[in-house]
Simulated assay, not measured.
Amino acid sequence: MKIISEQAIRSLSITPKTCVDWIYESFSLKQSAQLPTKISVHPADTDFITSMPCLLPPKSGDSTVQYFGVKVVHRIKGSVPSLGSDMLLYNAKNGELLALLDSDWITTMRTGAVAAVSAKALRKKNAHVYGFIGLGNTARAALLCILEAEPERQFHVKLLKYKNQAELFAERFADYTNVTFDIIEDINEIARTADVFISCITSADGLLVEDEKTFQPGVTVIPVHMRGLQNCDTTFDRVFGDDTDHIKNFKYFPQYKDYNEIGEVLAGRDPGRKSETQRIIDYNYGLGLHDVLYASKLYEMLKDTPCAEVDIIKESEKYWV
């Protein structure tokens, strides 16, 4: 069993554009993958430990390999970092445990890539003003994917001021020529003027935008971590999710006006936005499907590279206790 560290993953220099391509690929496999719903336990308050299994379809062109993985992700208040994850990757054809992967990079980049893909699929035609609140690694990953997936498109990004995070965020993208920034102190101003509103806030005690009417016609809202925008659920024209089984127990799910999965839009079976004035909200709860596909790609890139390994000695014959 290989031990694949974050350092080994970073050494591959995977581009944000590649991360976006992997999201399109993984969504295309959703109908043929086995994707059980997540199982979560809550040690205390808002802390959680969640298991995310997925069996990918058999690998095309190689009948000896079919990847299964289970990612365990946790958020524990006070730990550093507060959010962490690991994955066990198996070959389902023979049950072999192939690798233990540090999954923090996977979680961050696939989450950002999903937000970028969803925004592009659901935004109005001439959308170019993006609003970001919650300016941690997930927001950075999302904007990296947005900018590198469409280098020919100009974006204007409005950042919600918090301490010095907005300044550091803008500095990170100083070398990108297809983006400009404004730093805004009032979240309602961002809500009023953004074509795409992306929240990467990981916790919210109440609503982020008290009056959902603040959002302009034609807006696309993406609450990456599900928090603080539920007042849009029953009033927006369309609601999307990454997997119905994962979000069907959301409080307002029965009241969604016009719901479908984002994968149906990507596959061309749903038009997504039906008019330039529709207001749309998209909940991507996070799928083990993306994590396992990313892990399988990384494993294949690193399987012939020296990494720490653990020899697992298994019985080769039936034994009696």
Score class of each variant (00 low, 15 high):
A8I: 00
T37G: 06
F48H: 06
Y90D: 15
E317Y: 15
E317L: 14
K125Q: 14
F68W: 12
I222E: 03
S199C: 13
K158G: 09
A121G: 02
R273L: 06
E96C: 14
Q154A: 12
T111N: 00
T108S: 04
T64S: 12
N91R: 14
D211G: 08
T138C: 02
L98Q: 12
T220K: 01
L55G: 07
K2E: 09
S203T: 11
E261T: 06
H74F: 12
M52L: 15
G134V: 07
T108P: 00
Q34A: 06
Q7G: 05
R140L: 02
A99H: 12
F236W: 10
I198L: 15
D195M: 07
I198M: 13
F132A: 08
H128F: 09
H74T: 14
D243W: 03
L83T: 03
T235A: 07
V73D: 07
F236D: 11
R172G: 06
P223Y: 09
F197M: 12
L88Q: 12
T107A: 03
S316M: 15
T138P: 00
K163W: 04
S296D: 03
E300C: 01
Q7I: 05
G263Y: 03
K163M: 08
E152L: 15
C19L: 01
S203I: 06
I187T: 10
A99M: 13
R269G: 05
T64L: 07
A166E: 09
D311S: 15
W320V: 15
K213Q: 10
D62Y: 08
D21W: 01
W22K: 00
T220G: 01
D104I: 06
Q154T: 08
V196Q: 04
A113S: 03
L293F: 05
F27M: 08
Q255E: 05
N164V: 13
G84F: 12
A8G: 01
I4A: 02
D205W: 03
L266A: 02
K158W: 09
D233P: 09
R279Y: 05
L56A: 10
V265E: 04
A141I: 01
K297C: 00
D102S: 09
I3W: 10
P58F: 04
L160C: 11
F155G: 08
F197R: 12
D211F: 08
E167W: 09
D182R: 09
L12M: 04
E264P: 05
K2Y: 08
S26A: 08
V80G: 09
T177C: 10
R172F: 13
H156A: 05
I313H: 15
I3R: 09
F181H: 13
D195V: 04
V80T: 14
L229D: 15
R10F: 02
D102L: 04
D104W: 04
K124I: 11
Q230C: 08
K213E: 11
L35S: 09
A191C: 13
P36E: 03
M301S: 01
R172Y: 14
K30G: 12
C19R: 00
M52S: 13
V196S: 10
C54I: 13
S32T: 11
Y319L: 15
L287E: 05
A191G: 12
V65M: 10
E171R: 14
C145A: 07
E276A: 11
K59A: 12
K17N: 11
I23E: 01
D211V: 15
G61M: 10
